[in-house]
Design a protein around this nucleic acid. Structure first.
Lengths: 316, 316
DNA sequence: CTGAAAGCGCTTACAG
DNA sequence: CTGAAAGCGCTTACAG
């Protein structure tokens, strides 16, 4: 009954005969022994924790991403150290700093709006930690400055095709940023009046309190508009409310398109046409790429870009 | 420049003179030194991590709770170890076991449906860990079996007043569990036909895929119903969709009441009448009570019960 | 196949 | 006020 024997047993080493192993396990159970993984990792030099820093859990899109990440990571035997930034860059810096001291094996970051593309993730000593960006374009830019940068999960599909020819889409005045190429929308009949591409208001963050007002404003200032491509599903939900208040119904009087295909989009009132991006899988991919990088640090950085799928439901 | 001197400096001990302290800090910064908190805690016997196990982040109610918990905990200098159970008791057992080895200072659990009330949280060795239940009734029952049980955050307000006299509310046939006492609803005029109290379908979990069908079914089987008190806001959103599909509008043809006052409830189509329970604060309280217990383990268990507030908007 | 010894990076008495 | 020494709970060579 020696210390090292116990250690070998608990780590499932094949060196120990079954009988001895049994005795040890039995004794451990009887004494209510609980393994101190941190001590083990201190000595062994490994770590089974991964940091996940996420920007906005109030948006179901990111909540789904987090769930996907967590699922994959736990399945792989890791435990996740989570922090929420509420889109606040200062808090993001703070938690990034704190987590550095925890000696995680890796980090997945869904960056807050305004995160500099050159962000250097403070890595633990020596062993430069692997990490991934997730779900925002910032991914592309983190090359030379952060050589440990790994995966990029971008939701941005092919650009410059954001036109819905069948409807009158307001351009520069509305605040929504069109991210998709909703080709499906083109087929929806109507008068093809305006091909104005919705203005990309980069850097503009979709303030939850404004989702609704934005549509109100749009309807006031551009009374001839008959469609809107919304920044995301949550914005589109707000637009539905604004429409409803004026006695208009999306899909009848107005075409509305979201983005993300959040779970609730299938049962909004009316069900929302949107672009399916499978947020959960996005998260799982971010996790997978990170895990691959941890397993083989020599591996170059990779990226995964989701294939968006247009989903036409009642709203547009 | 000795090890212990460095340690004292980094922990802000007053024993070290300013000049020496400066030199140490400067050198640390220059060398890119990063403190290994786990090693420190191994020796010191403390821990600054807290486990948070949560059941369903797809429901914005719980996402808000998590955000509240995280905010409070990070502000207090802790770091959170998060796990998601997806309402799966088996996975909950798994993550609870894994987290035990991490030696957290405490645990907050939003139990999955079906969690036995007698659940014993596996505590780390010796130092029985403080912990809290959050947001589910299970709280009340965890007394004698888990003496380290701490706070209970219950969302259940006073019972047995769930009647909306102004409307015809289906009773036993619908699947929604009424949790609130929507007094405000009583004042909403209409024919007072039925006082049937909605049947409490305890243990019945609101399957997201069914939210919508449930309302459909209700309308089919009880065509004379004119109101529904929904289990929560998310269920109510599904009901709105079902209504909309039949050309009915909540607040005009039918009264609909949710529960939780999730952020989106203010801008659903139409805006949802609901019961405000301030999920974020619920989470913050769960965190506060846990922190108090950690600071003073002798302190008895406490509970916090939120005061619900009825919010009448357009839907009912 | 099992035990004694050194050490992961820190902290904490305890001497100088 | 600063340094030398022991030890947190584990793992990993290295002998027996």
């Amino acid at each position: 009954v020696s210390k090292s024997t116990v250690s070998l047993v608990l780590n499932g080493s094949p060196l120990i005969p079954g009988e001895t192993s049994e005795r040890v396990r039995e004794a451990a159970a009887r004494l209510g022994y609980v393994y101190n993984r941190r001590a083990g990792q201190l000595r062994g030099g490994s770590s089974n924790t991964i940091a996940v820093v996420i920007n906005d859990l109030m948006n179901p899109f990111f909540a789904e991403i987090l769930v996907g990440i967590e699922r994959k990571l736990v399945d792989a035997g890791y435990v996740v150290l989570m922090a929420h930034t509420s889109e606040d860059v200062a808090r993001q810096d703070q938690v990034l700093h704190t987590m550095r001291e925890q000696g995680t094996a890796g980090l997945i970051l869904c960056p807050a709006y305004g995160t500099p593309r050159t962000l250097r993730v403070p890595s633990s000593r020596g062993a430069s930690r692997s990490w991934s960006w997730c779900a925002r374009w910032a991914a592309a830019a983190t090359t030379s400055r952060v050589p440990t940068t790994n995966a990029a999960c971008s939701t941005r599909p092919a650009p410059a095709r954001c036109r819905a020819q069948a409807h009158r889409i307001p351009g520069r005045t509305h605040r929504h940023r069109a991210r998709a190429a909703p080709e499906g929308l083109q087929g929806r009949a109507g008068r093809a009046q305006d091909q104005a591409r919705p203005r990309t208001a980069a850097g503009q963050r979709p303030d939850p309190r404004r989702r609704y007002q934005t549509m109100q404003q749009l309807l006031d200032t551009q009374p001839d508009a008959t469609a809107a491509i919304c920044y995301n599903d949550v914005v589109a939900f707000g637009a539905m409310a604004a429409l409803g208040e004026r006695g208009l119904r999306a899909g009848v009087d107005f075409a509305l398109m979201g983005f993300d295909n959040v779970a609730d989009a299938a049962h909004s009132n009316p069900p929302l046409s949107t672009v399916d991006i499978r947020a959960g899988e996005l998260g799982e991919h971010a996790a997978s790429l990170l895990l691959a990088r941890i397993a083989d640090p020599e591996r170059g950085r990779q990226s995964y870009v989701a294939e968006p799928k247009v989903l036409i439901r009642q709203s547009g």
